[in-house]
Design a protein around this nucleic acid. Structure first.
Lengths: 121, 121
DNA sequence: CCGAGACATCGACGGATGTGAAGATAGACG
DNA sequence: CGTCTATCTTCACATCCGTCGATGTCTCGG
């Protein structure tokens, strides 16, 4: 069956966009449960560097082969981390030919920042 | 031996204040290792709510007894989460009489936000 | 059609982490 | 001094998570 109807399950990245800053009012348990995975995805040294690498890469995107070379980790491990970041909506995937390119969802990143910082948006 | 010389080990919160935004340039491994614990501390639903509760509490501070009542968790568990947040520099402790009050380090929170969002600072 | 290369998935292992029960500490109050 | 209350620490346990080797899938070139 075609993926024309993607069944719209909201990613954590979409959840965080709806919330007032942490410091404004107490966070209810349900919302916290939905936001935590997004921060958890960022709370790993390797994934932090992956996001940073992709973001600062030429044209704002990088293919997996580039990323693999930047770490002394196995290819499945990098693939795993990319999957985590993609699942929460922080990285976007696009396959071109044999290569897979990732780019950072700047809105998702900005939403997390505003949740913590309480500025912008 | 007295603890008069605290041996000044910089908290993760101090580390993050020194860095350009994630998206500006690739993060080196050592810096990522120092930032990750800060995000890891935030990447838990209970701790997210704790920070939010403290921040939005009257006078910007709350005592442990208030926080305990807001969760259906044992008191040691709450104490543990508070310790984690305190160790990375996100919460400040002050003991007054029998009670311990916590308040959020707004600068630490803002630094994390600017690291992700790339604005301010 | 077949081999090679680029990524993804699976299964397993070891270490980190959230949680609670029990005990320790420290101040307040009689 | 003894007790009560607020908080922290220790210990044990179950679960989660990062990592890798092996294997699967897809695409391109011959």
């Amino acid at each position: 069956m075609p993926k024309s109807a993607p069944a719209v399950l909201p990613s954590p990245a979409e959840t965080v966009a709806c919330c007032s800053p942490l410091t404004a009012e107490p966070l209810d348990a349900a919302t916290a449960d939905r936001i935590a995975p997004l921060l958890k995805a960022l709370a790993d040294p390797v994934r932090l560097r992956l996001v940073s690498l992709v973001a600062s890469h030429e044209d704002g995107e990088a293919c997996v082969c580039d990323l693999n070379d930047a770490f002394e980790l196995s290819q499945p491990t990098i693939s795993h981390h990319l999957k985590v970041l993609h699942q929460v909506g922080l990285l976007e995937r696009s396959k071109r030919g044999v290569w897979v390119y990732y780019r950072v969802s700047t809105t998702a990143l900005a939403d997390v920042a505003s949740l913590l910082g309480g500025v912008a948006r």
